[in-house]
Design a protein around this nucleic acid. Structure first.
Lengths: 237, 237
DNA sequence: GTATAAAGGATTGCATGCAATTTCGCCACA
DNA sequence: TGTGGCGAAATTGCATGCAATCCTTTATAC
């Protein structure tokens, strides 16, 4: 039996690449995602592209209109509100589970991630946004419930997408300072404080998403996602 | 523009049919789901079957092992516990939202569903199980959050699947009496009581799933799902 | 000049074909 | 009799082809 039994395969890699491209704002909301062009760029046939798009559609990152192709989702303000509200409640569940599971290893993982965030603070904005999102996902993983993890991932991704539509450009979208405080509260086992901090943190992020840019209709598809495609074609991790 | 713009299409219908078959215990956990046979039975090609299976796999109803085909999921006891715990917490969120949205129409929908449950009480067991599951889903719909609805659906389905693995056969899996009480509490706007009742209700269901049947390996695929396939082939709703 | 209709091009929906992988049966051999 | 390996059958992974649908452009009528 190969060690690569759990090898992620091409569909997974393509999905990940597209997801990253969306979250890092290389693919903006409203952009069309034609199967042919994507297939050509990733070096696979439409079959795999279609699978990936359907997966992303299930996550709410892509809109899939019948006979009219896929495009990066453009969540409405109403959906966005719903999403952010649900997010605070779901992450409440995460917090209480992480407090219950708290251990040195867990603390270590959190610290290690925060270090990465600090390091990337002055790097390119998309990367710091991604790391900020991944902080929440790491927390969810540490909560120990696979299903909860999936939900936090999905909500987190969709909130990220929403921010790229509605948030003002220059917001440091997730305060590193706030992550710091949350970790400290968790380390002390202070569930209540951690909860409050998380709530405040998420509310702050949501509030920054208040006024919209009102950018017009569907943009044209941009093929500057070469870096994403390359990884997939090379079969790299 | 056709009125049938939102026409559910074949993949949706097949997914629904398979989901029903799983929840109504026509397809038991561990059964193999070969693309060919299913395609033949539903009158479509493997392409659509594959799409459906992937969708169900995303919901956790189907396990999809690489190069080894699909089978009805066999959730472990650990997963089951996780699922039931998460379920009570998620449905807490549902309760408080429904209380906030309470209105005569909503009450009407609840009553109307309960009537169906009462009517089917002495009908075949699979149908009453399905109706019981749908009570929770109806509540989630009335909560007004599409994402929350999806999560409740998924968790509910998976819990239903779990019950078909671990629960004793003759349990009236969801007390109609308990649904009755929950509706009453909601009607009075008594969030706390409704929450407690729901918690108790779900715990009761989960507890019935304590001792396992320990049925062996993967069974053989049964093609007695003709009724499900027929609807799909006829294009009926 | 505007509006409507028809033709052409582009894109998706679905089926099928071929190669790769796994599984199962069979036979040899200890 | 039990075990190991080899080969055929079954099944999935992926690509491609054709038909159906939608969008765009052009031509024609008012």
């Amino acid at each position: 039996m190969k060690a690569a039994d759990k090898a992620k395969h091409r569909t997974d890699m393509i999905s990940s690449a597209l997801r990253s491209a969306i979250l890092e704002r290389v693919l903006m909301p409203g952009m069309k995602l034609p199967e042919d062009s994507l297939g050509e760029r990733f070096g696979v046939s439409r079959t795999l592209i279609r699978q990936s798009l359907e997966r992303l559609a299930a996550e709410g990152l892509v809109e899939l209109r019948r006979n009219k192709g896929a495009m990066v989702a453009r969540p409405s303000l109403e959906e966005a509100r719903d999403l952010f509200e649900l997010r605070t409640q779901i992450e409440d569940l995460v917090i209480s589970r992480v407090v219950k599971n708290m251990s040195p290893e867990i603390l270590g993982e959190l610290e290690s991630h925060l270090a990465k965030e600090v390091e990337a603070e002055h790097a390119s904005e998309p990367i710091s946004i991604r790391l900020a999102t991944e902080f929440h996902i790491l927390l969810a993983r540490l909560a120990g419930s696979p299903v909860l993890l999936r939900y936090v991932e999905e909500i987190g991704y969709r909130c990220g997408l929403t921010l790229s539509l509605y948030a003002r450009p220059h917001s440091t979208d997730c305060g590193i300072q706030e992550h710091r405080q949350i970790i400290d509260a968790l380390a002390k086992g202070d569930e209540d404080t951690a909860r409050k901090l998380m709530r405040h943190h998420l509310t702050a992020v949501a509030d920054r998403a208040l006024f919209r840019t009102e950018e017009g209709g569907p943009l044209l598809y941009l093929d500057a996602l070469e870096p994403y495609a390359k990884k997939v074609r090379d079969g790299g991790a």
